[in-house]
Nucleic acid binder design. Structure first.
Length: 200
DNA sequence: AACACGATGGACT
DNA sequence: GTCCATCGTGTTA
């Protein structure tokens, strides 16, 4: 089965639509390929999104054309990968929260400190960034064509579960509660399993 | 120039 | 459950 890059049109929809559809898709860098197992949607108007205080040099990719990366540094340590969604000019993104290794397990383990193969390798957005060797310079780069990082088609998962997003206590109560975090149902390669609801 | 604050992860009680 | 490293970014002055 040969994986092809997802076309720009795939991303040109609302973050809430694109997010669950990204489950099972793949992120391919030179050294590794990861299956996306858990994501969070940050649609336009979301009080938890980086777009909430307007456009700045850092978050500008969120307003740019869909299908590009938005990478930012969190807590001075972790590089987080988002995929830009929605129409050009409308800020939307999907945060990649967890993955399962498909290719380059040895490289992933090395970048993650040599820990055992298993979910702890990739169950968190910072860990995914570390495994991909993400650099802030990648922010704004396209993911729909061959390059440092490409998002490829992949098998559709059997089911999806959802729950509230993680680490957004500063947002409005309604947005904190919104079930905008999606994961592959019954998948071990996810983070914060407790707050993920039953499969739908 | 100074400051406050993270869409976290790992170590620890 | 608690604590906190670490630094880019946005805000204020």
């Amino acid at each position: 089965m040969s994986s092809t890059p997802l076309p720009p049109s795939f991303y040109r929809r609302d973050a809430l639509i694109v997010a669950p559809e990204l489950l099972g898709k793949r992120l391919a860098s030179r050294a590794v390929t990861l299956e996306i197992t858990e994501v969070e949607a940050y649609p336009p108007g979301d009080s938890a999104a980086h777009s909430r205080h307007g456009r700045t040099p850092r978050n500008a990719p969120m307003w740019g054309p869909p299908g590009h990366a938005y990478v930012y540094l969190c807590y001075g340590v972790h590089r987080m990968l988002n995929i830009v969604t929605n129409d050009d000019g409308e800020p939307g993104a999907v945060l990649i929260r967890a993955c399962r290794p498909i290719r380059g397990l040895d490289v992933v383990r090395e970048r993650r400190g040599g820990i055992a193969p298993g979910p702890p390798l990739l169950d968190g957005p910072g860990k995914v960034g570390q495994a991909l060797g993400l650099d802030l310079a990648l922010s704004g780069a396209p993911l729909f064509e061959r390059g440092p990082l490409t998002c490829l088609d992949g098998p559709r998962p059997g089911g999806t579960s959802c729950g509230p997003r993680v680490g957004i206590g500063y947002a409005n109560a309604a947005d904190v509660r919104a079930p905008w975090r999606f994961a592959i149902a019954d998948c071990a390669w996810v983070s914060h399993r407790r707050s993920l609801g039953a499969p739908r």
